[in-house]
Amino acid sequence: MANITLVEAVSLALAYELENDKDVVVLGEDVGINGGVFRATAGLAQKFGEDRVIDTPLAEAMIAGLTIGMATQGMRPVAEAQFMGFIYPMIEQIVCHAARFRNRTRGRLTCPLVIRAPFGGGIHAPEHHSESVEAIFAHIPGIRVVIPSSPSRAYGLLLAAIRDPDPVLFLEPKRIYRVNKEEVIDDGEELPLDMCFELREGTDITLVSWGSMVKETLEAADKLAQQGISAEVIDVATVSPIDMDTILESVKKTGRCVIIQEAAKHCSVISEIAANLAEDGLYSLMAPVKRVTGYDVIMPLFKLEKNTCLQ
């Protein structure tokens, strides 16, 4: 048992699966001896060898294609997209192939793969290193999009993602990679995908969030508590498919809902949750659903970063 950060929890989960499933390989740019630019794969190449933790040539579409090819042949590759800003060359492979193989071959070939990508702003990074575009992938049928918000959920959800028989995009909020430490038991216990996590019970309002924003959401709940308002806090965790049942159940109890995301507003995950609340939760609502989001602007360079990232 140890208190570890979110990025260390990612590393711990990768090590557990590499140790216990010979079909698991980790691949990507700089994931080998260097241990990844965020140290998410630190020590893994040294421990498991360069055949299990593979430095690839610098070509994102190729990394995704290789990962898909390996997965269809029964391996369980975990690829790293170094930053979400560099994931775009992978999109054709993810959308046209990873998401589709099971369906288009009627189950003959499957894609049990994970693509991990650090994402989001708040670390004063250069251009193209701070975007939150989970909605692009959440729109695609056939792929799960999972976002952890704490070390223990990073560990348990990544294990579940690797073991899942279908493709998972695992987005790691890099702003909170090292913000908090938490006790994580390295017992190989996974957490369920496709389910929200209720982080705090409340009766007056439901706060729904995921990824890095969960930190601010919990802080907001603390402030509300000081004002005598009891907030329920839900971490969506799997943003596609969304566990609306848990959110609707909560809103039935509280009658109010605020949804918080780092990403831009237009056509985003938050839009989907709000639309579902309008469709299925109208009679529970005592007030309009409120969306708190980034602006619909190009992610600014870091001098203006704090003006769009809620933190």
């Binding site: 390989v25 055949d51 579409a61 190729m62 995704a64 294609g65 290789l66 990962t67 898909i68 090819g69 390996m70 997965a71 269809t72 042949q73 029964g74 391996m75 590759p77 054709e92 492979q93 046209c96 192939h97």
Partner: peptide
């Protein structure tokens, strides 16, 4: 896109 799938399959055979 099939070319990189084939490369991935080949990598799995090699590993």
């Amino acid at each position: 896109t099939q070319n990189t799938h084939a490369a991935g399959a080949a990598l799995s055979f090699k590993l």
